[in-house]
Amino acid sequence: MATGGRRGAAAAPLLVAVAALLLGAAGHLYPGEVCPGMDIRNNLTRLHELENCSVIEGHLQILLMFKTRPEDFRDLSFPKLIMITDYLLLFRVYGLESLKDLFPNLTVIRGSRLFFNYALVIFEMVHLKELGLYNLMNITRGSVRIEKNNELCYLATIDWSRILDSVEDNYIVLNKDDNEECGDICPGTAKGKTNCPATVINGQFVERCWTHSHCQKVCPTICKSHGCTAEGLCCHSECLGNCSQPDDPTKCVACRNFYLDGRCVETCPPPYYHFQDWRCVNFSFCQDLHHKCKNSRRQGCHQYVIHNNKCIPECPSGYTMNSSNLLCTPCLGPCPKVCHLLEGEKTIDSVTSAQELRGCTVINGSLIINIRGGNNLAAELEANLGLIEEISGYLKIRRSYALVSLSFFRKLRLIRGETLEIGNYSFYALDNQNLRQLWDWSKHNLTITQGKLFFHYNPKLCLSEIHKMEEVSGTKGRQERNDIALKTNGDQASCENELLKFSYIRTSFDKI
């Protein structure tokens, strides 16, 4: 039985969820670079991206490699990797027998973001014989899940209580170790020597080791999670996991709180800001991140802002960003909400898709409305799209047979046209069989910064309504002859009103 693990408890099935942008060198404390989270699957090609990484700022997932063999891993080693800020997950990587050479110096898994409450997941690794993470000293947050690894031993010899604050939620089941077939031998045991430290858990006094050649490092209890030197002297209180010299914040392997210019500090002093819960960055760093993602459509890219001495992905609820200094300031009234469309555009074809934009005031991208039916549609669209004030790209209304009016965009005031449909149009209306009105132009103002209007096959939309939009939106004169079809717009509506004058002759039985 794995020490510190839980057996036999019912657990939810383990679901495996399925960018080499360097964020800056980590400095003297770390020998390499800070790398983003990685999802490495199918083959070993991307694994080489770990070569210079000291910190993975995010998670590391290595999974679904069915053609790899043990010899493929023999020359692979990433000794610079010290810390993973989120979680480490391995799933069905064939041929991998140990992690001792792959990650010989991995010391800390912070667990800032977890995989279903777990910071370390080893699942269905069919050839893994031992973990071998002999320098792993601290899992700051989260638990361990090690399950269905039929060859995995050296679990009962690990004292997880020396690595985690609590072992109650560890789930370590259905491994070879369960069948008591392992016969784990710690260093020196074969020669009758006791080389590794022994600890007591559940009444068992057991030597602690990761492999037959690597003991588990056990520091004096007084050192807590700070770690200790090879001689057993406690590291500085700002260290986490390990250090090369005692009581020196510049000799830590990793930091308990924050890293700044080669030393570990309790908090980031001005003019620095907390970033990702582990390091200090200056304003320029946060500003660069903001600008890199301002026009990016890459998933996970955030326009970072500053709030409460932190550089964070977005302002919290009730705050909006001051564009001059990136500071989050309290909103006066309802907060603006910028919604970034991942692929640059979004099609609204149902109430469900409209709900995804609920509360958005600025759309960074283009909207395509293609709704053919739905219950209580006008009210639903207004509830979900009615706060949109600005669209950076274009607005396209296409084959939306259920629409009679666009009044559900009740606050839309600006279409920038930074991206144009077919390279020309910022407003595009095609084949809307029941569209009769755009907006009530006596109450609604709309500016279209650039781009043209396109109207074709809107049989109940009168040309007068379209011409009014040209005047109000500032697009009059931009359109070419064929942009607004004269014969297919309003051709099934009563669009022309003329005053009919009647004269009559009164007659009676005795007068003409």
Rank of each mutant, 00 (worst) to 15 (best):
N257C: 02
R145N: 12
N309G: 12
E314A: 11
Q287E: 15
H307T: 03
H214P: 06
M321T: 06
S296Y: 13
G183T: 07
Y272V: 03
P220R: 05
H290P: 04
G95F: 05
C182F: 14
R141F: 09
F115P: 02
G58E: 00
W278P: 01
T250G: 13
R69Q: 10
Y30T: 06
T229V: 07
D277W: 05
D72N: 15
M38A: 07
G227Q: 14
K191E: 03
Y30D: 09
G142S: 02
S77F: 15
C219V: 04
N149F: 02
V121F: 02
H214D: 03
I139K: 01
E168S: 15
N295R: 12
G232C: 12
T85D: 01
Y273H: 11
F285M: 09
L44D: 11
E168F: 07
R279G: 14
S166V: 11
G333Q: 11
I312F: 01
F258I: 02
I222L: 05
E124N: 12
P104A: 02
N179K: 15
I82Q: 07
H59N: 09
L76C: 04
P330S: 10
V108R: 04
G142W: 00
D177A: 14
I146T: 01
K100A: 06
E147V: 13
G32Q: 15
L174K: 14
L155S: 09
Q216H: 10
M321Y: 14
E180I: 03
G262W: 02
R41W: 10
S323Y: 14
G95V: 02
L326S: 06
R145I: 05
R113W: 06
D86P: 00
P31R: 02
Q61N: 03
F123G: 13
N149K: 01
Q216G: 04
S77I: 08
I185L: 05
D72E: 11
Y94K: 07
C35S: 00
L63F: 03
Y118Q: 07
K251M: 15
D261T: 15
F115K: 04
N309Y: 06
G300W: 09
C239F: 00
A254I: 03
C286A: 11
V126T: 09
T107A: 08
F205W: 15
S98A: 10
C315Y: 02
I158M: 10
N257K: 04
W160I: 02
P330V: 14
Q276T: 12
T320M: 09
G232P: 07
V108P: 00
F116A: 10
E207Y: 05
N150Y: 05
W210C: 10
D165Q: 06
Q299C: 06
H59C: 11
A119V: 03
D177I: 15
P330I: 14
C311I: 05
T250S: 10
V218W: 06
P271S: 10
D277V: 05
Y30N: 04
C219E: 02
L136Y: 01
M38P: 01
G95Q: 13
Y134R: 12
G262I: 03
I158S: 07
M321R: 06
L155W: 11
R297E: 10
P316K: 03
P269H: 13
C328D: 03
T194W: 13
R41G: 08
Y118W: 07
C223K: 02
L326P: 11
N135A: 12
L106A: 00
L164R: 08
M137W: 11
F116G: 13
C234W: 01
N309Q: 06
S166G: 07
E168A: 06
G262Y: 03
A156L: 04
E181P: 04
K217I: 15
D101G: 05
F123Y: 07
V218E: 11
N135W: 02
H48V: 12
T85A: 04
P197I: 13
V93K: 00
R279T: 03
L131F: 09
T68M: 14
L44K: 08
L152T: 03
P70Q: 13
G318W: 12
L260T: 08
E238A: 10
G262F: 05
C209Y: 02
W278E: 04
C223S: 03
I62W: 02
E238F: 06
F91I: 11
H291P: 01
P270E: 08
I163L: 13
I306D: 04
C35K: 00
K310F: 06
S323C: 07
G241L: 03
L47P: 03
S317A: 05
L174M: 13
M137K: 11
H214E: 09
C293D: 03
I172S: 13
M137L: 09
S77D: 04
H28S: 04
R41T: 15
L289Y: 10
T189P: 10
K224N: 07
F115G: 01
